[in-house]
Design a protein around this nucleic acid. Sequence first.
DNA 1: AATCATGTAACATGATAAGTATCGTGAAAG
DNA 2: CTTTCACGATACTTATCATGTTACATGATT
Lengths: 163, 163
Amino acid sequence: MRKDSRLSRMLHVLLHMARHDGPMTSEHIARMLQTNPVVVRRTMAGLRDAGYVRSEKGHGGGWAIAADLEKVSLLDIHRAVGGPSLFAIGAEHENPACAVEAAVNEALEDALREAEALLVARLGAVSLAELARSFDARCVAGGWPHPGEGAQASGSIATSEQR
Amino acid sequence: MRKDSRLSRMLHVLLHMARHDGPMTSEHIARMLQTNPVVVRRTMAGLRDAGYVRSEKGHGGGWAIAADLEKVSLLDIHRAVGGPSLFAIGAEHENPACAVEAAVNEALEDALREAEALLVARLGAVSLAELARSFDARCVAGGWPHPGEGAQASGSIATSEQR
DNA sequence: AATCATGTAACATGATAAGTATCGTGAAAG
DNA sequence: CTTTCACGATACTTATCATGTTACATGATT
């Protein structure tokens, strides 16, 4: 099935927001993600409930960061969007009566647990701030057009805003 | 999303087949898995194509193991059933034009690659024969009714056949 | 010839993220 | 105070894919 892209999308948005002063509208964000404003609101509602972002209605409203990016990990965002299951495979029955099935499930779940622990550790070890910094480094190293630190005063993040 | 249980189911079936002399029908296997014979044939077709099992039509027909279980790993079975993606999360766009999105995707995919490598290594390290032996050990240790080694001459694997 | 079992095709179901349309609510601007 | 803007919420549709189901053809055994 199609993969859950909520974590990926929210990280994308948050990094843009970190480089943006003033709130960003759902409409604006939706264009960045190539989707619909309602999808944006739906997904970002989880981040708001967790206190990572704030939303304001009316003129000049929109979404803004509401937490210290040093203190929020990728894992936190994963959980804020619903913490969906990481794996696409698993056992059919939770508590099988068949001993063979139970043994198979345990073997598989052991392996999955280990991989999940690794993934959780990796995601939990990276803060949004670190991810933003590694983006900066990537720009310098890879020759991407680098969004200048001082060029955003009036809301312009032109270089990497679209898509 | 509902999880793909083909690997789990096929391991379940293969372990039963290893303790069973003579072919097992799709009907019989379907009862074990609590599903439909067509689902069984569809899924086991991949194992047959890979040479791990054999199927025979007509009276006395059905499915039988066709390979040395010491030489077939859990990973082999995973691949034989289509090797579906292990993860339920991922990025939305393959080749994003946005540098921020590209950086986010790379960070996530790095972590996923690592977890996948771990899982692949784990699944690749266990043979079906080892899994069967660990099932035996589990029976002895955990007080499960242990299917006796000599009690299956006429097709009886009564203790752990159903479910 | 009858029966059994697989092979295959075609279609239905279930679950879930994602996409869409619509209306309500509150805040700022004039 | 009316208009406009932007979020909030609900309801519904779409897309996807493993799984479930029905039906029929094919080949092997009796």
